[in-house]
Design a protein around this nucleic acid. Structure first.
Lengths: 137, 137
DNA sequence: GTTTGACCTAAAGCTGACTTCAAGTTGCAC
DNA sequence: GTGCAACTTGAAGTCAGCTTTAGGTCAAAC
């Protein structure tokens, strides 16, 4: 239970002080006291920030992350269904990105004199539009 | 060389009319004439929109996409290095997402009474912060 | 006791990709 | 010739997640 002031938290977490204040406004973290005007934190804030960072890389919004976390301390509530859903989403997104990457590589390698001369490329163009169209329905 | 009015282009491309006007302002597409006030398009605009959609799923910004495309018609310039770079980026991003997905699944499955009781989880929290820190350098 | 530098606040600004708004114009059906 | 739906315009608004700005306050070093 060390006390840290905002500059230390910023250093150790990699989050800018302005971000820490912003997170406080959003209810994601809480300072527990002041030294003069300066916010002081309990070192458990670093755990919370770790959770936030994790949530962010997992693609959750700050609002969602706020909901997972208990108002104080290091504990939090993760719904297993939410986790599976998000994992699915990430897996799908990962596959989509990998597919697109392969596509870009094909375009780079393709020796047709003009890209439009490559039938595979023309099909890809159509698919790109169709993917848009169907995602609306 | 069919002429299409904006509503048809919107229907066939899946892009909203407001988006088409926006793209025109950004220089991504061009209308070639009016019927009254209404924009008319050559059907090559659909190819261009296909390219735009493709570029978007590949993670390029509208500005980047604009640079690839010749001012008019269906042709465009894709730098092979750019393509490889972007493909690399996408591959890396895909891996990162997949890793995060696995992580979420572990959290969902982990039977430790509290998440903080799981050593693997505590390590993940640290890593999440460290990943942030090091990406700044 | 004054300077300094790091913090404080509320509010506004930023980015990217659009959408929405208010007010105006048009072609076409009746 | 009148109504109306679908377009037109420029400007402003939206979203998320921050950062920046302007003006203020404070603890500690000198």
């Amino acid at each position: 239970m060390y006390r840290l002031d905002i500059a230390e938290v910023a250093d150790r977490s990699g989050y800018a002080p302005s971000t820490l204040r912003y997170y406080e406004k959003r209810g994601l973290i809480a300072s527990d006291g002041r030294h003069g005007l300066r916010r002081q934190y309990d070192d458990s804030v670093l755990t919370r920030l770790g959770l936030i960072a994790l949530g962010q890389t997992a693609g959750f919004s700050l609002d969602q992350i706020a909901q997972f976390m208990e108002p104080n301390g290091e504990s939090f509530q993760l719904d297993r269904d939410d986790l599976h859903n998000q994992a699915d989403k990430l897996h799908r997104k990962a596959k989509e990105l990998a597919a697109t990457a392969h596509l870009l590589e094909h375009i780079a390698k393709c020796t047709a004199p003009s890209h439009m001369g490559c039938p595979r490329f023309r099909k890809l163009l159509k698919d790109a539009l169709n993917a848009r169209g169907s995602s609306h329905t």
